[in-house]
Simulated scan of single mutants.
Amino acid sequence: MTLTAQPRTLAAPTPKKSVAGRSPALIPLLLGLPALLIVIVSQGYPLANQLIMSFQEFGLKQQFGQPADWVGLDNYAAVTADPVFWVVLVRSLVFCFACAGLTMAIGVSTALLLTRLTKTVRILVQSAMLVAWATPVLSSLTVWQWLFNTRTGVVNWLLVSLGFEQFDGFAWLLEAGSFFVIAGAVIIWMSVPLVMFMVYASLTQIDGEILEAAQLDGATGWQRFRHIIVPGIAPVLMLVGLLQIIWDIRVFTQISVLQDSGGVSADTNVLGTYVYQIGLGQGDYGAGSAVAMIMLLITLIISWGYVRSLVKQGNVS
């Protein structure tokens, strides 16, 4: 007589519970909830208030308690119908991508250079970069204004000494082109250290044996950089590049201070200073809020590609 084993049905595994009786998947959400609430309270209310204000006729009278009239999309129509807005928008985008591109190029090049330096020299360079990055914006602008001062500036004196007599008493801030050269130099100088630190940290995670093997196989420096280094640090490059674009499109302090030092605001306005002049300068808070919301929309469009890639990575994992 033979006995046949009866097949056993395995019960579906039950999800593990934490000590408190909650699923482990909820723990990160609970830990991040306080920070999320702080962001909602500190950023959500001003953003919602600004969105509502962009649909209202909100001026100086409303600041003193007079009810604001609802005008719908009139503020957006007035802003987009103004040719000055489109000039400022194009100028802001060109200036933003130029500064972000140069910042990334210089930052990545400096990070690659750090991998070739000795330890002592590398520490000195990193220390100098850290000081440049940690210097307050207004303090840095004071130095740059002194460098490009019309009468006593070091830059003008040096150029004249080299034989460029046309720079004797040259007013850098009066010309829009030279104004943005100075503004771009300030922004790039203060942004390069962060890019350098983040890219260098990611470079240290690349396996040196892979680079050595590629070199032995005859790969040039550019080929190693393109096919090994860039794919290895691509997430960091994407993140840092996106942050630079967002920061540079919202730039305000550098442009505003240089305008107060002699720049012509009509020729040097970017979106940040344009919003300030419409809202606080002219007292038209409704139109200023409309421009600010357009800035937010542009930022979201630029950020969407990176956010979508993060969502895809989360689904894969």
Score class of each variant (00 low, 15 high):
Thr4Met: 11
Leu10Asn: 09
Ala11Arg: 15
Ala12Val: 15
Ala12Cys: 02
Ala12Ser: 11
Pro15Ser: 09
Ala20Val: 12
Gly21Cys: 06
Pro24Cys: 05
Ile27Gly: 07
Pro28Phe: 04
Leu31Lys: 08
Leu31Phe: 14
Leu37Asp: 10
Leu47Phe: 13
Ala48Asp: 08
Asn49Cys: 03
Leu51Arg: 03
Gln56Tyr: 10
Gln56Asn: 06
Gly59Lys: 10
Gln63Val: 14
Phe64Gly: 03
Pro67Lys: 06
Pro67Gly: 02
Trp70Ser: 10
Gly72Arg: 04
Leu73Asp: 05
Asn75His: 02
Ala78Tyr: 05
Val79Phe: 11
Pro83Thr: 12
Pro83Ile: 08
Phe85Tyr: 12
Trp86Val: 03
Trp86Met: 04
Leu93His: 03
Ala98Met: 10
Ala100Ile: 08
Thr103Tyr: 01
Gly107Ala: 08
Ala111Met: 06
Leu112Glu: 02
Leu114Gln: 10
Lys119Arg: 14
Leu124Met: 01
Val125Asp: 00
Ser127Ile: 10
Leu130Trp: 07
Leu130Val: 11
Val131Met: 11
Ala132Lys: 01
Trp133Thr: 03
Ala134Leu: 06
Ser139Ile: 14
Ser139Asn: 14
Ser140Leu: 08
Leu147Arg: 07
Thr152Gln: 13
Thr152Gly: 04
Leu159Asn: 06
Leu159Val: 09
Leu159Ile: 03
Val160Met: 00
Leu162Trp: 06
Phe164Tyr: 13
Phe167Cys: 05
Phe167Asn: 04
Asp168Thr: 07
Phe170Ile: 07
Leu174Ala: 13
Leu174Asp: 13
Ala176Pro: 12
Ala176Met: 14
Gly177Ala: 11
Phe180Pro: 01
Gly184Asn: 03
Ala185Gln: 06
Val186Glu: 10
Ile188Lys: 01
Met190Asn: 03
Ser191Ile: 08
Leu194Cys: 04
Leu194Gln: 09
Met198Ala: 15
Thr204Pro: 02
Asp207Cys: 12
Glu209Arg: 15
Glu209Gln: 15
Glu212Gln: 11
Gly218Gln: 02
Ala219Val: 04
Trp222Glu: 08
Arg224Asp: 00
Arg224Ile: 05
Leu237Ala: 04
Val240Gly: 08
Val240Asp: 00
Leu242Gly: 08
Leu243Ala: 04
Gln244Tyr: 00
Ile245Trp: 01
Ile245His: 02
Ile246His: 00
Ile246Ala: 03
Asp248Ser: 13
Ile249Leu: 12
Ile249Thr: 08
Arg250Asn: 15
Asp267Gln: 14
Thr268Gly: 07
Ile278Phe: 00
Gly279Lys: 01
Gly283His: 03
Ala290Pro: 09
Val291Gln: 01
Val291Trp: 01
Met295Ile: 07
Leu297His: 01
Thr299Cys: 12
Leu300Gln: 07
Trp304Gln: 12
Tyr306Phe: 11
Val307Pro: 00
Val311Leu: 09
Lys312Ser: 01
Asn315Cys: 09
Asn315Asp: 14
Val316Ile: 14
